[in-house]
Structure formats: structure tokens, C-alpha cells
Design a protein around this nucleic acid. Structure first.
Length: 970
RNA sequence: GCGCGGGUAGCCAAGUGGUAACGGCGCAGCGCUUAGGACGCUGUCUCGUAGGAGUCCGCAGGUUCGAAUCCUGUCCCGCGCACCA
């Protein structure tokens, strides 16, 4: 059941019992419907609507998902404390094939599937039967399983409005999607066309990656068929028309460099009528062409050798080239007829050499060896780093002599890359001459295709086999497309990107890039769960296309339950979502939609920018008015487990339920949000999670002690004011971070950084004083409010014990002007400096002083400091100013040194800081801290003034500088 | 190749012009304790018998009074690149 978790360490105090405490709060929240949000008296401007992609329950929930849903929760809790009416809903995405596929594999008894369910998610044997229908499977992982999403979310304490949940196969949701697609179609944004898909020849069905046994990683490629022709061909075939030899290539621009062609002499070929032409291709290719919407009628079957020695004409240059035999030709790749470009293809270069060398073989096929020997590579482009014949250079400099050389593949790849990105075509290419291949390949291809010289064929570079055992080919299928490349729609989407609060900001470029790059998106599938395409019920609207505007569905999801399905007509949604039409009930509901919309923040994974999130913007931009477009998107990073990718198939996962049972939900939440900012990757490490728990427990124990201890009263000393000033700073910083979704910064600031302040305070202050008690109580109360979004169970409990009200029910803290105090912060910094300086000296000299003398700098030194501040940090200018004083002039070098120091001191500080420093009375600060220093060092502390002719046994007083007293230990 | 991000101490990680650089883990010492993997304090680049000096942020240059931070070049790593969700 996932990775074993070590037991938490038990503290000396047993009072922190997260399981008990968290269970009580969960129950309380559920019973009171605490997070059910409805439009109320608050202004819609003060409503916050935050969403996260609805989970896809094709398996259980693991710890990686936990952060995904906790990020928006923390933001939602923060906004609630800020006084907003906050809606945070959830639903379940079951559209598409993964669940169906998982069920099928399970029913077939697929070992790895069963193993994953049992091992990673702890599904008991007895439950497996319930998973044998798609919705049974979905339902199980939505809410029935121990590792279900709903259970995980509730245990984490997510502040979700559970009344609004639905699944994407609900009838009402399907009505909504139906409306969306009818509307888009009416607006001309859907288009029908043929599209290549992976297709199993055994089952006569399209297949997805999950259906593949072999070649899961293989992507099909678009080959160009260069239509070489033979007018003379006919040695035993039908000679009544020109015969086309379509040569498959991925580099159509090399057409002018073809010197010969190859066929596999032992391969099976056919002469076939393809559409209106007669083609010669391999038998396999003929089958593939048929799948790709060509009319194919086989006239004769012939072995490859029948075509060897034939002459064919280059459709672009008009040159005649010879067909040679070659065993390396794979009849199951492309057309089975290949063209040879020895100048630019290392393979072809070597093959030609080998053919030339084997005159005997050529003669067997009736080819004149002299004719082959006469073939010279024809270069068609120039590329830096290679000579005239790049393939020759590449092969020779790599020392490759035969086609069997394992280094050939890499050399070939190198040549292809260089030529593609840097190769400039020669002038014979007319308007493409002088251009770089990368920039014109597509154009050039289209140009010759329109002239009838080229055609297109799709094929895989490696074998692909389906789980049914059938060969997978590329077939054309009728498909409906979303026209994401429509210029008007693109323009709206771009505007939606521009309006967006993209978090972090550097993702904006990725959205723009996606909008530029998206073409037509096939939005239907042949099978799977989902909403049927309204006008062609054989197809299902695919998952990325039925999840683009569903956030608007949330706003009324629970109300729609009260309406009979058949009343949810096209007009109903027109009224609800567009404000067009007169459906009465829809008009009422539109008020709720209007109250919550737009989506304020969508939190989603960074890999969804290039599809889902951009689609989300597109569809909103089209269907809604600009003020209703998404306001912000926060991107989330990936999770690792002990430094490695999580994998439910390998059982390398941690389940939230187990983690919460071990550490408590607050610890899980705090770890997930504090270990990195939402958009950064994070790493779940059990050891660190354990230590997070220890830290929270320590916090709890201190808080309980404080709550149970006496109240204190407001009688403040310097050090109390210092801590209170730090507290105000913390409030400001945490609030700023929360506004930017910087959960790590926020929680670090409120928790760890403040712990550092407290450490200093405990060392510095007498904690038994009533003033200290009052201060610590105030600090605790404020910190609990700042931490409530992160650790809501603990923070609410402690805050309630402290004040009678849970933290979530009181406002988010604001800085108290009375306690904002830069001076006291600067003064305390001086005390800390002195403390460290004295410790340094003690350490270095290894002495135990009985008396510590601090000498505060002479008045004239402070005057020099003032001058530097006024004049600016410029040595010359300051010296000019200072030297006008006769008394100082006499001290010459000493003054110069001091000015040098003070100039850099001033240069490194901003105006506000300098102003604060200028007002500080140093001697008073040290006098106030003397008792503390005496405690620290167990020594007498004497504060002296350099000016007052002090006791100075080691002649140290002169070293005093402003804000840096001289020190003498004795 | 294109797009985005990143290389900082034994590990994780903050820092985007001003002090070897917040935290956490680990490690070491001390205290507390029957004990502790609990808790508290201190330390953790090197050297140093006076608060100092030296070195340092992938590598190499440059700009600047001053660079982990800005610029140029370079090496390495991660993610995405569609019809999977």
C-alpha cells in the first residue's frame, strides 16, 4: 500500500493529537455547511471564485494530487478571512477512454493493472468486481474507496462546497455541453474534415496510446511522395498510361538531388490504380494508401526485381534516373520505393558506393555497371561546416565505411539537423533559392503538391502493434475540428491572455506561444465516455474539449438538480449563459452565475498550458463578454516522491489517507505548501515531513502553554516593542505573498522566520513579565490568523481556545500602525551587532571577561556621518566639506579613514534606513541592553563615551565608529 | 530543433546590484533527562589569541566604486511540443 511511512516520533507532551482534533473540525465543518457559498448581501466584487481541474478518477488519489487541490484551498481560506464570499467547488471528469480502458484491462485480467490497483491504491480483492463497469470504476475512486478523491479531499480539510459536485456524464451536464457545441457550430467554429489517426487493422478501429502493445512512444510521420514517372515502363505490365513510382521521403526539398532510386528486389510490389493514376508501390503501402482515403485497385502483383533497371523521370527536374536493387529497402515503410540523394544522405552515399563496387550483382539484374559508376552526387544546398558534398564529408570524417557501422545513425541525424536548420538551398530552386530549409520546407512541399508532382502519405517509422495483436497503421477518419487557428478567434484568445493575471508572470509567453501555434483541434472520438456530438451521435466530444467552460456550470450546478432534464433546452442555456432568450427559470439562475463569474483564479498544472488552459481561454473569449473572462491562472509544478517521479503503476505513491493517519492533515498541508511555491516542483520526503510534524507539535505545545498561562498586561519594554514591530512586518509580508499565491513565502514568513524572531526574544526578554506575556499572547493570536489557511485545524482550535472564536471567523490581520516601528528594529539590530562582536572576540581570544567596556563614538564622528548622509556617498565631496572644520583638519588621516568607512556604510543603505539611524541615541540603546549583555557574558558591562575621557586601559576608545562602538574586554 | 525553467554549502533550498548568502534536513558540542530517534541552546567554507582576513554561487569573459544578482559566450540538467488526460 504505497511507500511505508515511518511512525511519528512521540513528543514529551502528548497533548497534540491531530487525528482527534482534525476529526472534530471535519465534523463541525460538515455539519454546519461551513463552506457552502451562496450569493449573500456581500457585493459581487467581494466574491471570489477559485477552481482547480476536476479530478479524473482513473485510479485513486495520491499525495501528488493532494497539493493540487490544497493550493486553491489555501487561497480560498485566505480570501474568506479577507471578508470575501468564496466559492470553491469540485466535480469529476470521466470523459474519454482511460477509465474505459482501465476497466477493459481489468476484465481481461491484466496483471499490471490489477497489481497497480491492489498495490498502489490498496483495493481489496473483494472490491475488484465493483470496478467492472466504467461508472462503477469511476464511482469507486470518486467516493467509495478508502483512497477515493472525495475522502482524500475531506480528510485534507478542503473548503469545498460539496453541494455542487457532478460528473461529466450526468445528463444535465451533457445538456450543457450539447448547448456549447451547438453554439460553436452555429458560429462556424467547428469544421468537418479528414484527419490521420492510429488505426488497428485487426479490429478496424482507431486506437489510443493506451491500446498499444508495442510502439507506444512512436509518432506517425508525414511522408512526402515524390511522383517519379516512367513513360517507358511496361516490360510486362499494362503500358497504356504513364506509371508513377511514388518515392517516400521526409525531406522533400532534396528532390533536385536525386540520382537514382531503390527497390527491394525480393519484396512484394503491386501495380495498382490509385485514384486516377497507376502507381507502383509495395504491397503493404497499397494497403496503407487505401486506409488513407485513396481508391486503390490492384492490377498485378510483382516482385521488386521486376522494376530494377527501369528508368524513371524526376517530376521536378525532368532528369531520368535508374532504379537499383537494395536489400535495405523496407517494403513496410512508406511506399517501399525510395529515392537516393547521395550528396545529403550518408545512407544513400554509402549505398551508392556499395552498389558501384558490386558490378557482378548489377549485371545479374541486367544493369550496366558503367552506368552506375557514372552516377555522381548532386548537391542541392550549402551548409556551414561541410564541404560541397555534406554526406561524403560527414561519413569520411567520422571514418564510417559501411552501412552496418553503428555510428552511421548519429552521423545521419547530425547532417539532417544541420541541413534543416542551416542549409541554404541552391539557386535552381527559384524562389526558394538562398532560403534556409527550415523556413521553406512546408511551402515548397505545398507548391509541388499543388502542381501534382508530390503527394502525401502517413506512416510510422517503427512497427506499432495494438493490444489486440493487430498491426496499427495511419488511417484517415472523418473528424470534427475546433478551429483554434481562426484569426478572429485567435485575436480574442490573445486578448484573454493579455487580460490575464498569469502566475507566475513568465507563463504569459507560453500562452501567447500556444495561441500562435494551435491549429485545428480534433474534438471528437469514436468511443469512450462523454457527451455525444449533438448532430452525430456516433462520436463523443473528447475530454479536453468538454472541460473548457464548465466552471460556469458550477455556479448553478446544485440548482440544476431541481430542474427536470428535459427542461434544460438550448434556450435555457442561451438565457442562463448568454442572457439571450426568455427562459424564466434560467433568468433567475443567471443572477447566481453573474454573481460568481468570472473565475478569479484557476489553479492548474503547468503542462496544461499548451492545451487545456489555452482552450479554457479560447472558449471563454468566444462565448462570454470580456468582463467574464478568466481573471487569473496559477500554474502548479510537479510532485516527486523521495526524489523520483510518482508512479501508480509501480506502486511508488503515498496515499493521502495514510499520510494523514501518520502525520495529521495539518502537517501534510503545511509540508506541501511550504516546501516550494505552487509553480515549483516539490519533493515529498518522509523524513522532512516527519520533521515538519515535529515543528508543528512544538508550535502547538508552546501555544497551549501560552493559552493556559496567565494573561499579562500591556506594559511594554523596548524588546516587546521590537517583537511587535516584527509582527507588523510579518503581517505585511505574508499578506503580500498571499496575494501572489506565494504559499511558500507566506508560510515561511509566518512560521519559520517568526520562530527566529521568537528565539531572539526568548533570549533577550524576561518572559515572566506581564508585558512579555501580553506581547506573546498578541503575537500568538495574530500568527494563528496568518497560519489558518495553511493549518486550519490547528489554527482554528488554538485560536478558539485563546479567544473563543475560530481563526477563520475573524478577519485577516492588518498591520497596527502603533506598533510599526523602524527605530526599535534598528536599535535592536545594534544590540545584536554588539552581542555578536563581543562573542567573536571572546571566541577568538578564548577569554572569559569580567568587564566589558563599550565606547560610543565621539560626537564629531556622528557629525561626519550626518555630513555623509547630506552630501551623498562621495569621498571627495565629503572630505571637502569636512576639512573646512579646523579641528578635524588636524586629524587628517583618521578623518579620511572614517569618511571612507562611512561613505560605503551610507552607500549600502537606503534613505529611510539612514534617517532612522540618524535619530538613534546610541548610548541609551546600549545602556538599555546592558543588563542583557551582563546576563549573556556573566560580566560587568560599562557604557562609556569616547568624548568623556573614559577609562581606556587598552587604548580602544578611538576605534569607535557611529553605530559600531569600540569594545574592550578585561 | 522550438518554447519554458534551472545549475548557490554534505542534501533540499532562499536570495535578482551593496556584509559568506533566510530557512529546513543532516552533522557536532552543550543543557534537560532513567533513557531518548523528544525538547532547548550553540556551532557547521578556510585561517585567525580583538570584533579581522581569504576564498566562494556550473564554466569563461565583460559592465560597475561594488556582481550569485546585469551583459556576452559556453557546458550541463528538467518539463512541454498536441489528438493521452
Amino acid at each position: 500500500m504505497g511507500v511505508l511511512l515511518p511512525s511519528p516520533r512521540q513528543g514529551a507532551y502528548m497533548s497534540y493529537d491531530p487525528q482527534d482534533l482534525e476529526a472534530r473540525w471535519r465534523e463541525r465543518w460538515a455539519e454546519s455547511g461551513r463552506y457552502e457559498a451562496d450569493p449573500d448581501g456581500r457585493d459581487p466584487e467581494e466574491s471570489t471564485f477559485v477552481t482547480v481541474p476536476y479530478p479524473y478518477p482513473s485510479g485513486g488519489m495520491h499525495i501528488g494530487h493532494a497539493r493540487t487541490y490544497t493550493v486553491p484551498d489555501v487561497y480560498a481560506r485566505y480570501r474568506r478571512q479577507q471578508g470575501d464570499n468564496v466559492l470553491f467547488p469540485i466535480a469529476w471528469h470521466v470523459t474519454g477512454t482511460p477509465i474505459v480502458g482501465a476497466v477493459e484491462r481489468l476484465k481481461k485480467g491484466d496483471e499490471s493493472q490489477i497489481d497497480s490497483l491492489q498495490h498502489a491504491f490498496g483495493v481489496p480483492e473483494a472490491d475488484l468486481k465493483n470496478l467492472e463497469t466504467p461508472m462503477g470504476f469511476a464511482r469507486y475512486f470518486i467516493e467509495e474507496a478508502e483512497c477515493s478523491y472525495k475522502s482524500g479531499m475531506q480528510q485534507l480539510g478542503l473548503s469545498i462546497d460539496w453541494r455542487r459536485e457532478f460528473t461529466t456524464t450526468d445528463e444535465r451536464y451533457q445538456r450543457f455541453i450539447t448547448w456549447q457545441y451547438e453554439t460553436l457550430k452555429a458560429r462556424g467554429l467547428l469544421e468537418k474534415g479528414l484527419h490521420p489517426v492510429k488505426f488497428c487493422t485487426e479490429q478496424e478501429n482507431p486506437v489510443t496510446t493506451h491500446d498499444l502493445l508495442e510502439g507506444e512512444e512512436v509518432e506517425y510521420q508525414e511522408y512526402t511522395l515524390v511522383k517519379f514517372a516512367s513513360a517507358t515502363f511496361g516490360n510486362d505490365a499494362v503500358a497504356d498510361a504513364e506509371t508513377v513510382f511514388p518515392m517516400a521521403t521526409l525531406r522533400p526539398e532534396t528532390v533536385r538531388g536525386v540520382t537514382n532510386a531503390y527497390v527491394d528486389p525480393d519484396g512484394e510490389y503491386v501495380v495498382a490504380r490509385v485514384d486516377d493514376e497507376r502507381w507502383v508501390v509495395s504491397a503493404e503501402a497499397a494497403e496503407k494508401l487505401e486506409y488513407q482515403a485513396h481508391e486503390v485497385e490492384i492490377e498485378r502483383e510483382r516482385p521488386g526485381e521486376a522494376f530494377v533497371g527501369e528508368t524513371v523521370t524526376n517530376p521536378v527536374t525532368g532528369d531520368e534516373v535508374l532504379i537499383l536493387p537494395a536489400s535495405f529497402v523496407d517494403t513496410d515503410s512508406g511506399s517501399g520505393v525510395v529515392m537516393s540523394v547521395p550528396a545529403h544522405s550518408p545512407d544513400d552515399y554509402l549505398a551508392l558506393q556499395e552498389a558501384t563496387a558490386d558490378a557482378e550483382a548489377l549485371e545479374t539484374y541486367g544493369i550496366d555497371p558503367a552506368a552506375v559508376e557514372a552516377i555522381e552526387p548532386v548537391p542541392i544546398l550549402s551548409v556551414e561546416g561541410y564541404g560541397e558534398i555534406p554526406a561524403k564529408d560527414a561519413v569520411e570524417s567520422a571514418g564510417i565505411e559501411s552501412a552496418d557501422d553503428p555510428g552511421l545513425k548519429e552521423v545521419t541525424q547530425q547532417v539532417y539537423n544541420r541541413e534543416f536548420h542551416q542549409g541554404e538551398l541552391h539557386d535552381e530552386y527559384g524562389k526558394y533559392g538562398g532560403e534556409v530549409v527550415e523556413d521553406v520546407r512546408d511551402d515548397l512541399k505545398a507548391h509541388f503538391e499543388s502542381q501534382g508532382a508530390f503527394a502525401t502519405m502517413y506512416d510510422f517509422p517503427e512497427p506499432v502493434i495494438s493490444r489486440a495483436g493487430g498491426k496499427v497503421v495511419v488511417a484517415y477518419q472523418d473528424t470534427w475540428f475546433l478551429r483554434y487557428n481562426d484569426p478572429d478567434w485567435q485575436a480574442k484568445a490573445s486578448r484573454a491572455v493579455a487580460n490575464l493575471d498569469a502566475i507566475p508572470e513568465n507563463t504569459r509567453e507560453q500562452y501567447d506561444h500556444t495561441v500562435d501555434w494551435l491549429e485545428e483541434w480534433p474534438c471528437i472520438r469514436n468511443y469512450g465516455l462523454g457527451t455525444p456530438l449533438p448532430w452525430d451521435q456516433d462520436f463523443i466530444i473528447e475530454p479536453l474539449s468538454d472541460s473548457t467552460i464548465y466552471m460556469s456550470y458550477y455556479t448553478v450546478a446544485h440548482r440544476l438538480q431541481e430542474i427536470p432534464v428535459e427542461d434544460l433546452t438550448h434556450e435555457f442555456f442561451d438565457t442562463l449563459l448568454l442572457g439571450e432568450g426568455d427562459h424564466e427559470r434560467a433568468r433567475e439562475l443567471r443572477e447566481e452565475w453573474d454573481y460568481w463569474y468570472p473565475v478569479d483564479y484557476r489553479c492548474s498544472a503547468n503542462d496544461l498550458i499548451s492545451n487545456h488552459l489555452t482552450f479554457f481561454l479560447y472558449h471563454h473569449a468566444e462565448l462570454f463578454e470580456e468582463p467574464k473572462w478568466p481573471q487569473g491562472i496559477t500554474i502548479m509544478g510537479m510532485g516527486l516522491l523521495e526524489g523520483e517521479k510518482m508512479s501508480s503503476s509501480k506502486g511508488h505513491v503515498v496515499l493521502p489517507g495514510e499520510a494523514i493517519a501518520t502525520y495529521g492533515a495539518d502537517t501534510v498541508r503545511f509540508f506541501l505548501l511550504n516546501s516550494s511555491e505552487p509553480w515549483q516542483d516539490y519533493d515529498w520526503r518522509a523524513e522532512e515531513v516527519g520533521s515538519t510534524r515535529d515543528q508543528l507539535e512544538r508550535f502547538w505545545n508552546r501555544a497551549v502553554e501560552r493559552i493556559e498561562g496567565p494573561d499579562g498586561e500591556r506594559d511594554l519594554e523596548q524588546v516587546d516593542r521590537w517583537l511587535l514591530a516584527r509582527l507588523q512586518e510579518t503581517v505585511v509580508d505574508v499578506t503580500a505573498a498571499m496575494e501572489n499565491f506565494e504559499t511558500r513565502t507566506a508560510s515561511q514568513t509566518a512560521f519559520y522566520r517568526f520562530e527566529e524572531h521568537l528565539k531572539w526574544y526568548r533570549r533577550r526578554a524576561d518572559l515572566e513579565r506581564p508585558g512579555a506575556r501580553w506581547t506573546l499572547r498578541t503575537v500568538l493570536e495574530t500568527r494563528l490568523r496568518l497560519l489558518a489557511p495553511f493549518v486550519p485545524f490547528m489554527a482554528n482550535e488554538l485560536h478558539e481556545r485563546l479567544t473563543g472564536e475560530p481563526a477563520e471567523d475573524v478577519p485577516w490581520p492588518e498591520p497596527v500602525p502603533e506598533f510599526e516601528d523602524d527605530a526599535v528594529l534598528a536599535e535592536e539590530a545594534l544590540v545584536k551587532d554588539v552581542l555578536e562582536d563581543v562573542w567573536d572576540i571572546v571566541d577568538v581570544t578564548d577569554t572569559d571577561p569580567e568587564t566589558i567596556r563599550l565606547y560610543v563614538a565621539a560626537d564629531w564622528k556622528r557629525e561626519v556621518f550626518d555630513t555623509v548622509v547630506e552630501t551623498g556617498p562621495n569621498q571627495g565631496a565629503v572630505m571637502g566639506q569636512v576639512m573646512q572644520d579646523e579641528a578635524l583638519r588636524e586629524q587628517g588621516d583618521a578623518v579620511n579613514d572614517l569618511v571612507g568607512d562611512l561613505v560605503s556604510f551610507v552607500r549600502e543603505r537606503d534613505a529611510d534606513t539612514l534617517e532612522t539611524l540618524a535619530a538613534i541615541e546610541e548610548a541609551a540603546v546600549y545602556a538599555d541592553a546592558a543588563a542583557f549583555l551582563e546576563r549573556e557574558f556573566d560580566a560587568e558591562v560599562a557604557i562609556e563615551r569616547e568624548d568623556d575621557d573614559p577609562a581606556d586601559p587598552a587604548d580602544k576608545a578611538g576605534h569607535a565608529r557611529p553605530f559600531r562602538p569600540a569594545i574592550h574586554l578585561e
